[in-house]
Simulated scan of single mutants.
Amino acid sequence: MIVYAGIDPVTGKRVYLRETIQGTDKAAHKRAEKTLNKLLAQADKQQTATSSVKFSFALEEWMRTNEIEESTSNTYRGYINRTIVPALGEQPVNKVSVRMLETFYSDLRRCRERCDGKPYVEYRKPDEHDCQKAKCRPHACSPMAQSTVRQIHAIISGTLDAAERWEWIDSNPARVARKPKQKRPEPTPPTPAEAARLSEEAFRIDDDWGTLVWLAMITGMRRGELAALRFSHIDLDQEVVWVHRNWVRGKEKDTKTHQRRRIALDSETVALLREQHDRVAERVGGAGAEFREDLFVFSSIETPDHTEPYSPNAMTPRYKKMATRLGINTHLHALRHYSATELLTAGVDLPTVSGRLGHGGGGATTLKVYAAWVAASDRKAAEILGSRMPKRRRD
């Protein structure tokens, strides 16, 4: 039994609802009539929406009512405008189906432009021009990354969840639609020898820079958390640092997981931070200002009074340039991996490592990212226990 249900807006192909009824007796005939009525009602529901709300409108309403960070909102807006609306925007929200979404994701994984497979030229200018000078080139399919498609799926799913709450649709098809599998995290921390070289080079360049790199290694703090760190967040007598702020796109905000965490410091790190405190106090006084505990620990040379933080966007290229000069292929965020893996390798328990990193999920995130090092730590624990057991005599 086949019933026409409209045109798939993603593929442009006709959509049919199908169901098979076995048998030729009277009972089978009744089942067929019942099934036909069901399919006709389903097709009618898909073709004649009870609401004229388009998916693009639902997206806008979800963005308007959803409480998310500005940086996240800007990222979502880019995906919506460039990818989602061109493909699904004109579709009534109650016609979005599981098959439609899976086809959409599959198309993106094949080509981010969702081309039809036919060759064409990517023109760089809309008006008449010299293609050679404008560097126009034939289109080459480039698949969209799995992580990006998953983000797009999250936007669509969030919108359809809202549409379901608002009673625009009966159920959210994105809830059961298959999305690309999440790639297993593969952290690549520097080796202890490389970390030592990076730290030495950082202090050779500048004491402030050396202290920042050292603190990143020891605490595993994110770059935005290092930028937002103030002297008032550090208790040198108790030897702890409180991490509860983050610097993102020129604004001070909560940490990524909206958690306030306490990180214990070793005596060497405390000594370095005391030196940083004294150095900044002298610098601020030399600039004709008064030192206050709420000043930022790290700042750029352009703001000697430390009223503005060292920009995270300046930290990353500076660190990368330093590492490249040393012949080490790494990046600033890898210092967070270094801190975690060194602790786990040393046998520190998972909840403690998770707490220092500020991971959510009670250690689930830490375990997922650093599974190999957790396994190594577990092996080390087994060897320690085994070494302490009495040895059995074997004949």
Rank of each mutant, 00 (worst) to 15 (best):
Y4W: 15
A5E: 02
A5Q: 02
G6I: 02
D8Y: 06
D8K: 07
D8N: 15
V10W: 09
K13R: 14
K13Q: 12
K13Y: 03
R18E: 12
D25Y: 05
A27Y: 09
A27T: 12
A28W: 01
R31H: 10
K34E: 15
K38H: 12
K38I: 02
A41C: 02
Q42F: 00
Q42Y: 00
A43W: 06
D44H: 15
Q47Y: 01
T48A: 09
A49L: 00
S51I: 02
F55T: 01
R64G: 05
N66K: 14
Y76T: 00
G78F: 06
Y79L: 10
I80G: 04
R82V: 09
T83I: 12
P86Y: 02
G89F: 02
Q91P: 01
V98L: 09
M100G: 05
Y105E: 06
Y105N: 07
L108C: 07
R109Y: 00
R109E: 07
R109T: 00
R110A: 13
R114W: 03
G117F: 10
K118Q: 15
D130A: 08
D130E: 10
A134K: 05
H139A: 10
H139R: 05
M144N: 00
A145D: 05
S147N: 09
S147A: 13
T159S: 14
A163L: 05
W166E: 14
W166G: 08
W168C: 08
V176L: 14
E186P: 00
E186M: 11
P190K: 02
A193T: 05
E194R: 04
A195L: 05
L198W: 02
L198R: 02
S199Y: 04
E200F: 07
E200L: 13
E201N: 04
R204K: 13
L212A: 15
L212F: 12
L215V: 12
A216L: 12
M221I: 04
R230Q: 15
S232C: 13
Q238I: 00
V240G: 09
V243H: 08
R245D: 11
V248P: 04
V248R: 06
R260T: 08
R261H: 10
L272V: 00
L272G: 00
E275T: 02
H277Y: 12
H277W: 13
H277R: 15
R279M: 12
A281D: 03
V284N: 11
G286S: 00
G286N: 07
E290K: 13
F291W: 15
R292K: 13
D294G: 04
L295P: 08
F298E: 11
S299E: 03
I301V: 14
E302S: 14
E308S: 14
R318I: 03
K320C: 01
L326I: 03
L326K: 06
I328A: 13
T330Y: 09
T330S: 15
H333F: 07
L335V: 01
S339G: 13
T341A: 08
E342G: 12
V348H: 06
V353G: 12
H359N: 04
G360S: 15
G361T: 01
L367W: 02
K368E: 08
A372H: 14
A375D: 14
R379W: 01
A382R: 10
I384W: 04
G386P: 01
S387K: 06
R392T: 10
